[in-house]
Simulated scan of single mutants.
Amino acid sequence: MSLSHFDEKSGIVPHQTEWGQWWQTIEEIHIEINKFKNLKSKDVNTIFSPTNIKCIIQNETVIEGQLFQTVHADEIVWTIEDQGSLLSIILPKADYNKKEKVWEALMADKRYQPDLFTLQEMRKKLDLENFQIENPGFDFSRAELKKCYDNISDSNKK
């Protein structure tokens, strides 16, 4: 089962924001901005670096600042979807091959940080995705983990 198929079967664990939502996989951060209508590419101005993001839509700065971790800025992709009502941005994680690396927030200053329950669910999702990578012949999309995820911050310091 491919990882994209894994995501389709297992669903996502999003964090809702005032501009839309974000979620993560082992390899990527996904941002969906749905606060605008009838978007055209000329309405979107994005500036990306390995550690920073700035997204201006229709002359309004929606997201700006230092990212929680480093990304591959030259591989970032954004698209306008759903007849111009959704801007989708995919940020490839630079450190995705480090096992158990979960972003605790979208931004380094902890903006757009999910509540503890959502963080735990994100962590479980990444663990299942890791199992899927390590065992491609099995389907972990509906598996449940009984692991304790109380100290999320401590596990990210590995």
Results as ranks from 00 to 15, higher is better:
T46I: 15
V62R: 03
V62W: 01
Q120I: 07
K125W: 10
T25Y: 04
I53H: 00
F140K: 02
D139A: 00
D127R: 06
L3T: 10
E8H: 08
I76L: 05
T17H: 09
T70L: 04
N130Q: 15
L145D: 02
D43Y: 06
F138N: 07
T61H: 07
I57Y: 01
V102Y: 14
F117W: 10
P50A: 04
K147I: 14
Q21K: 15
M1C: 01
C148F: 12
Q83D: 10
T61A: 15
Q58W: 02
W23F: 15
K157L: 12
M122H: 07
P136D: 02
I89G: 14
I89T: 15
P14M: 09
I47D: 14
D154H: 12
Q69K: 04
L39F: 06
G11I: 02
F131T: 05
D82M: 14
N130P: 01
L145A: 05
K157Q: 15
D139Q: 00
H30T: 08
K101S: 15
A94Q: 11
L87A: 10
D154N: 13
D127M: 11
L3H: 12
W78Q: 09
T25K: 04
Q132T: 05
P136W: 05
K110G: 05
E134A: 03
K124A: 11
R123D: 06
N156L: 06
L3E: 10
I89H: 15
L145F: 05
D154P: 05
S153I: 03
I26F: 13
P92I: 07
V71T: 12
L67T: 03
R111E: 05
E121K: 15
S88N: 09
A105I: 08
K54C: 12
Q113Y: 03
P92A: 00
H30G: 04
M107C: 07
F140G: 01
L116K: 11
T79S: 11
L126Y: 13
M122F: 09
Q21Y: 13
I12N: 04
L87C: 15
R123E: 08
I56S: 00
F6G: 00
R111K: 03
D82P: 06
I76D: 09
Q132S: 02
G84P: 13
E134Q: 08
D150C: 09
T61M: 14
I29P: 03
T17F: 07
V62F: 00
F68E: 12
